[in-house]
Amino acid sequence: MIIKKPADIKSDEITPESVYIDRRKFIGTSAIGLTAAALGSRGSKLLAQDDRQDDELTSFESITTHNNFYEFGTGKGDPSRNAHTLRPRPWTVTVEGAVENPGEYDLDDLLRPHTVQERIYRMRCVEAWSMVIPWQGVPLGDVIARLGPTANANYVEFVTLLDPIQMPGQRRRVIDWPYIEGLRMDEATHPLTILATGLYDRDLLNQNGAPLRLVIPWKYGFKGIKSIVAIRFVERQPINSWKALAPNEYGFFANVNPEVNHPRWSQARERRIGKFRKIRTLPFNGYGDEVAHMYAGMDPRTLY
C-alpha cells in the first residue's frame, strides 16, 4: 500500500526536462531490450529492468475528467460533462439475499458506524492506463460483517443505479443496464477492498461514482462499480456486466496481470496518466503480497 499524503504531490507533474532525459534513457533501454531479446531468457531480465517511477498522486483534475462511466457516455470526457444530472443524496442502498440484516438502508445510516479511512491506491484500467488515487472510504469487510452474511453467501453482487433520466447514457443499450459487478466473499472482505465515498478529501464527484463505489486495487478498474444501489449476498458467482458483454475478453476475477494480454491489446505495460513514458504493469497491480494467496492453486490464466 502506498502511504503518501496529498501534501507530497509535486506541482511540476509535467517536467519537460525530465521527459527529455527520460527519452534519452529510453533509447538506451530500447537498445538494451533488443539485445536482451537476442540473448534469450537471461536477457529478458535486463529488458524487465525497473522502469517504474514513484507512485506520484494523479492530479484531481485528471481523476475527475478522465473516466469510464458509460452511464454518462462512452467518451472519457463524457462523465465529467454529463454526470451533473445524478442526485447522490438522498441515496438508498438495498441489502438483500443470504444476509441476516437485509433491508433498504439510507446511505448515511449504512456508513455511520464506520470510520472513514484514507487509502492511496494505484488504479489500473483494463485499457492499459493507470492512476494513483487518494480515496476516502470504509473497508467493505467491516460493512459486510455488520450486515451478517449467512453460510450460503459465497459471493457479493453489486448493482449500479438504473435511471435513464439521471444517467442519460443508459438511454442507449451499450451495456445491458444496470451495471453489475461481483466479488468472491474472501475478496470482498479483504482489508484492501473499500467502499469509497470520497477522493482528495472531498465527497466523490458524480463522474467518479458518487455517492458510493467499490475500489479493489489489485483488479482492473471496471470491477470498481460506481453509484451502488444494491448489495446482494448470493450463493453463485454473479455475471458481471463486462463478462456478459464479451466473456472472451473480460472475466469475473479481472486481476491485473501483465502476463495475460487482452485479446486485442497488450497488458504488459501501462501509461500513468500525466506521464509520458509507459511503465511495466505489475502482477496484482503491485498488491501481490497481500492478495496472491487468495488465488493459490487457481490457473492464473483464468483470472483475467
Binding site: 530500447s30 509520458f276 509507459k278
Partner: peptide
C-alpha cells in the same frame, strides 16, 4: 513516437499479432 516511443518489441508484436 508518443505512444510506444519506438519500443520495437511492442511495435512488432502489435503489427503482427494484434489484428486491429
Amino acid at each position: 513516437v508518443l505512444d510506444l516511443f519506438f519500443y520495437l518489441p511492442e511495435v512488432l508484436e502489435d503489427v503482427f499479432l494484434r489484428p486491429y
